[in-house]
Amino acid sequence: MSNAILMALVPVFFVLLLGYAAGKFHVVDNLHVDALNALVMDFALPASLFAATASASRREMIEQVPLFMVLGVTMLLLYIVWYLAARRFFKVSRSEASLQALTIGFPNLAGVGLPIMTSVVGPAGTVPVAVALAAGSILISPLTLIMAEMGAAKARGEEMAARQVLTAVRRAITKPVVLAPALGIVFSLSDVSLDALAHASLALIGSSAAGVALFLTGAILSAQSFRLDWKIAAATVASDIVRPLLAVAVIRVIPIAPDAAKTAILLAAVPSGFFGILFAVNYGLDSARAGSMVIASTAFSVVTLAVVIAMFFPQ
């Protein structure tokens, strides 16, 4: 069991620390990671997710519906609770509260979830990651963009129009990392087999997704100033402990197969994602709080992921 945990976690955190060191020692420019981000989020990861979902049979894809529902409800509930708490108790703006809620509610499925799943369950783990990414991207990313747009409009002294809301939603759901698994799911449900040549072509660029995403996460984190206070500690508990426990509670309500339930809990235990940092940079907001949340959550997830793997994937 200990060997299985080491094999699952050590490579992931090795590449993560490699990216962190590369950014910290200025081997790569950790303040301008647009090129790396585009490679991962616009090319490598979409190719990997499309190839995985489009190659799945209709039956296999239909079996992923409960996973979509469990993780979607889990992420949405945690997002709403943290957003309301941040607004009421932390007295932060809508934009800041939504960025924090996105960071806590939406795990780092691209950077940590994908390599963890492929290590634990093999290549078949890519499909659940794609479904989980689709759930978060469809349900909570648009909410965050709408709140960020509302904050930007308020800063300009304007009221947010319905057109801006629709624009925010369109921007969220038309990103390649959202469209690719969605199109792959449609392709799979249509029961059309993906051509072997197309699969090989997509797999070539897609094979770099997990490693580069981890490296990118490390580089992004190396540029964030870290400060630990009770809010960061609470965010870490919410991300690494409450989220998987919430998934366990949701599983008791939504019928789901035992193997899929284990996968849902493992994906829910993945540490906080860096989308909140990227959104903060795009909207000119302070990314330090979200950065501290991601750093603390990622460091503590060494323990929580090891516990989840030992409990549900001992072999």
Rank of each mutant, 00 (worst) to 15 (best):
S119T: 12
S57H: 04
P107W: 06
A152Q: 15
K91E: 05
A101T: 05
A56E: 09
G19M: 08
S208Q: 07
A180S: 13
R59M: 07
G273M: 08
L6I: 13
A47Q: 04
F300Y: 10
V127K: 04
L76H: 10
L214E: 02
P66A: 08
A238K: 00
L221I: 05
D286V: 07
P258T: 03
G273E: 08
L305F: 06
D34V: 10
I80F: 11
D191Q: 15
P11E: 05
L285R: 15
A124R: 12
R171L: 09
S95E: 14
A203P: 00
R156A: 15
G122Q: 07
V242I: 15
D240P: 00
M311A: 14
M160P: 06
N30P: 11
S222Y: 08
F187M: 09
L204T: 14
V169A: 03
T144C: 12
P66N: 08
L204G: 06
D42W: 12
I256N: 00
F14R: 00
L99T: 05
P255A: 03
I256Y: 00
P115V: 01
F90Y: 11
G184Q: 04
V302T: 14
H26R: 15
P115Y: 02
A182E: 00
L189E: 07
P255N: 02
I295K: 04
T126Q: 13
L133W: 00
L204A: 15
A162Y: 09
M293F: 09
A101D: 07
V65G: 05
T53H: 01
P176W: 11
R87P: 00
G218S: 07
L77C: 13
L102N: 10
L71Q: 11
A153S: 15
P123W: 06
T167I: 05
P255L: 03
A269V: 09
L45P: 01
A296W: 00
G125S: 05
L109M: 14
V129D: 12
Y283W: 11
S301M: 03
V307A: 01
V294T: 01
L9H: 01
I5T: 07
P46S: 10
V270P: 04
A261K: 06
L18I: 06
I277V: 13
Y83C: 04
L84M: 11
E149Y: 14
